[in-house]
Design a protein around this nucleic acid. Structure first.
Lengths: 122, 122
DNA sequence: TTTTGTGGTTCGGGAATTACGAACAAATAG
DNA sequence: CTATTTGTTCGTAATTCCCGAACCACAAAA
């Protein structure tokens, strides 16, 4: 099986990060990886945001996150342990990634609130 | 001619902004608009980053920036005045956009430095 | 050791986007 | 009016994206 490509910290680009995080599904995944203590696997996200995603699609999303430099993936037996590269990113980009995640969090909260207003619970 | 669509501040999304700024050409344009005192026009950017861009492509880039909510465009005679929507963006997203621009600035500086090392001037 | 199961990747093709040349539109100058 | 300048729209080729099907690697069961 092909080795997993991870860019060196110096090769991580802003455009790569922004592109990776410009997809709501990928952000949900990334935010959960950041938030979580233990590493997350691909199949932790088969259901996300009320949608069921095929695993081929998920695999692609993880690849994008990995090759953008946002996460580190290690095979551990059958599964893949994904962890965030926080420290390296902060080192290189200051609080940019944090600011993005925060902005998304607020947006998701708004959207959830709006949805709840539409459908005021069953 | 069709009216120009500008999203209301409340309708600006994080993913829209990240996507718009995940293209190096668009970032150069946006950064220049932010930096500049007077409004910038489309044809200010026919040459950018050592490439010549067709104006149809440029027009699309401006449209993406506008519809993401990053810039405001007003027809003034034959040309289009583009200004940044800084205040609204800061209001809504804090320092996210600023952090992105700063990160890009540093990256561009690095890349220019690396290029100069390759070609140590004629 | 074969079989079965699980987690994930790769491949292929249709759908959706993107880039850009050509034609067009609107304002202004001569 | 005609010519110029600035920018948009349209059509199409090229690229990218999504997802089902097939596949690969490892582990545990038989």
């Amino acid at each position: 099986m092909k080795p997993l490509y991870h860019p060196a910290a110096a090769d991580i680009t802003v455009e790569g990060i922004l592109y990776a995080l410009s997809d709501p599904v990928r952000v949900r995944i990334y935010a959960e990886i950041v938030r979580s203590d233990c590493p997350r696997t691909c199949s932790n996200f088969l259901r996300i945001d009320d949608r069921t995603l095929p695993k081929s699609t998920l695999s692609q999303h993880f690849k994008v996150l990995r090759e953008a430099g946002l996460i580190r993936s290690e095979r551990k037996g059958v599964e893949m342990r994904n962890t965030s590269r926080c420290e390296e990113l902060r080192e290189r980009f200051g609080d940019m990634v944090g600011a993005i995640i925060d902005a998304y969090k607020e947006q998701f909260a708004r959207q959830d609130a709006a949805a709840r207003r539409e459908t005021p619970e069953v």
